[in-house]
């Protein structure tokens, strides 16, 4: 099985270039004296992200999207493949990640309370990256902290508050401000709004957009909610059980998905219009099949076991990438590259 790259995904000003990324975790031991098995969390993943662009990485829990994000942030060590970001090759780092990389690539995590040190006040949390990266002290640092707060719509009196004294949305603003402190080129957003209330969600999505307009930062937006991702992203990559199965422009993915999994995912997003939701529900039932349990099958398409369009070839080999009209590409035997067409099955 090979993964062809190119068509529709190659870009000029490449900021992030991930090739054949593989992350495995030790699994269970079948017996105490045996070596533990391997759980493949990310399997041969390719990603490209241009400067100033937002790429959505969508998938269910266990799809490997957060693991991918953590590998790019170098919070875990990948088992294979290359990650090139902002002129650095991530795999080449030893235990210590160069400060330059930390300056270029920042993160905002899902749980805004958990990701802020509970013993520090907001002022200290924001001052830390300024001290670490620029060695700033005293009034100059205070001035920068105040500017950061203002950038994310918080006021000076928040400086002396502890994280638990703020609301969820305010905490997430602090996380964004901390990421912005070092003027990064890329921010990895790991489920940045899924822990927030609806009315606050849209405030944060808008803030992220404002920041991007102002600073030209690129986002890797990891999320499970396709509706949010569509609003926040230029392009979307859909992950299913350790692989990317489809990618392309956000509107194309959401309006005419090419992969049956993307289609099922879209049908599952409930629409607040009850009339539309009735149609949506019908589609959901047609496409719904219980999620498989256990390990990812070693060969074939990981979605095959629940796919309504399954063909014999699907369990034999992982499909090659095929370009899709409207932009992007899909890894599915339905779309060519295979000798069998759906009508024949």
């Amino acid at each position: 099985m090979t993964i062809t790259t190119g068509d529709g995904t190659a870009r000029d000003a490449e900021l992030l270039r991930v090739r054949n990324l593989t992350v495995t975790f030790p699994g269970r031991r079948s017996a105490p004296w045996r070596r533990p098995g391997k759980v493949v969390a990310v399997n041969g993943l390719d990603l490209d992200l241009a400067g100033g662009e937002t790429l959505g990485l969508v998938g269910e829990s266990g799809s490997g999207k957060t693991t991918t994000a953590r590998a790019i942030l170098r919070l875990l060590r990948p088992s294979g493949g290359t990650i090139e970001a902002a002129g650095f090759t991530v795999g080449a780092f030893g235990r210590r990640v160069p400060l330059g990389y930390r300056r270029a690539v920042q993160a905002v995590f899902q749980d805004p309370l958990g990701s802020l040190d509970p013993t520090k006040v907001i002022g200290d949390i924001l001052a830390e990256p300024l001290a670490v990266h620029f060695g700033l002290r005293g009034t100059e640092r205070d001035r920068r902290v105040a500017a950061l707060l203002e950038q994310v719509g918080l006021a000076g009196h928040h400086l002396r508050r502890y994280p638990y004294e703020l609301s969820g949305g305010q905490r997430q603003r602090v996380s964004i401000a901390r990421a912005l402190a070092v003027e990064p080129k890329l921010i990895v957003l790991d489920e940045p709004v899924s822990a927030l209330d609806v009315s606050v969600q849209s405030q944060v999505v808008n803030l992220l957009e404002d920041v991007q307009e102002r600073t030209g930062v690129a986002y890797l937006f990891v999320a499970h909610d396709l509706a949010v991702v569509r609003h926040a992203c230029d392009r979307i990559a859909v992950m299913y059980r350790s692989r990317i199965v489809e990618e392309g422009p956000a509107d194309r993915i959401c309006e005419s998905p090419a992969h049956p999994y993307t289609e099922a995912l879209l049908a599952a997003v409930p629409d607040p219009d009850p009339a539309r939701q009735r149609i949506q529900r019908r589609r959901r039932r047609e496409l719904g099949a219980p999620a498989p349990t256990g390990a990812v099958p070693a060969t074939g398409c990981p979605f095959a076991s629940r796919c309504p369009h399954r063909m014999p070839v699907c369990t034999e080999s992982f499909p090659d990438w095929t370009p899709v009209t409207g932009g992007g590409r899909v890894a599915c035997h339905l779309h060519g590259g295979s000798p069998t067409t759906p009508e024949e099955t």
């Binding site: 919070l75 920042q106 993160a107 990701s115 830390e128 990266h133 996380s175 901390r178």
Partner: peptide, 17 residues
């Protein structure tokens, strides 16, 4: 394993810090 430790790692803090 706490998330805030990931947060400060990404912020660039070294092990000692």
């Amino acid at each position: 394993e706490e998330l805030y430790v990931d947060g400060v790692r990404v912020a660039g803090a070294g092990s000692g810090r």
